[in-house]
């Protein structure tokens, strides 16, 4: 066994910055932990809090797999630092429903076969929940546009769309049903407000 002998450095090695204390409410539970300042919210959720439902896809804000809700608003958790969110109220896919009591969107995604590999699904569902909370989408075209931040490599878009449209239909949120044409959707639905 050889011994590692470190040669003296000609400069002071950089010291690690101190970790920072962060307090978050995640899925209605208080969490208190310390992280290095460069830890993204996504990495804090997955690596420090074992909430691995939130997925790391591109890690650059392009795919939406890491979508979570902060104070009810959807964001990309890969493009924010945990320390920046100190004090925030966060909902992840684990907080939307339970296996025994699925949220309406979770149930609709199953009913409409709205995924294949499932990797983008937690982000899709959190994003769709954010879309419902925002209340801006009233038509199929608007749902498509306002879900464009979530990519699905398997191409389950038509079924994702029909799952979301079904939940909006049940909630009376659809304004214009003329163009309701998502694959496998319910075409016989009555117009609500048009």
């Amino acid at each position: 066994m050889s011994t590692v002998i470190q040669k003296p450095l000609d400069h002071q090695p950089p010291s690690l910055p101190p970790t920072q204390s962060v307090r978050l409410t995640i899925n209605s539970q208080e969490s208190h932990f310390t992280v290095a300042p460069w830890t993204t919210l996504l990495d804090a959720l997955r690596e420090h809090l074992d909430l691995t439902g939130t997925k790391k896809g591109c890690d650059h804000g392009q795919c939406g797999a890491c979508t979570v809700l902060i104070d009810g608003k959807r964001i990309n958790s890969c493009l924010t630092l945990a320390v920046m969110r100190d004090g925030a109220d966060i909902t992840t896919i684990e907080g939307l429903g339970t296996p025994e009591n699925l949220s309406p969107l979770q149930q609709a995604f199953i009913d409409h076969d709205a995924f294949q590999c499932g990797y983008c699904t937690p982000g899709q569902i959190c994003s769709a929940q954010g879309l419902l909370n925002e209340g801006k989408a009233k038509t199929e075209a608007e749902v498509r546009e306002l879900m464009s931040g979530n990519l699905c490599r398997c191409g389950a878009y038509p079924n994702i769309l029909s799952a979301i449209m079904e939940v909006m239909d049940k909630d009376g949120l659809i304004m214009d049903t003329k163009e309701w044409s998502a694959g496998g959707a319910k075409p016989e639905m009555d117009p609500i407000n048009s």
Partner: peptide, 9 residues
């Protein structure tokens, strides 16, 4: 521009 998630941040 961007996506709803990005515009929220």
């Amino acid at each position: 521009g961007a996506s709803p998630q990005l515009r929220n941040m």
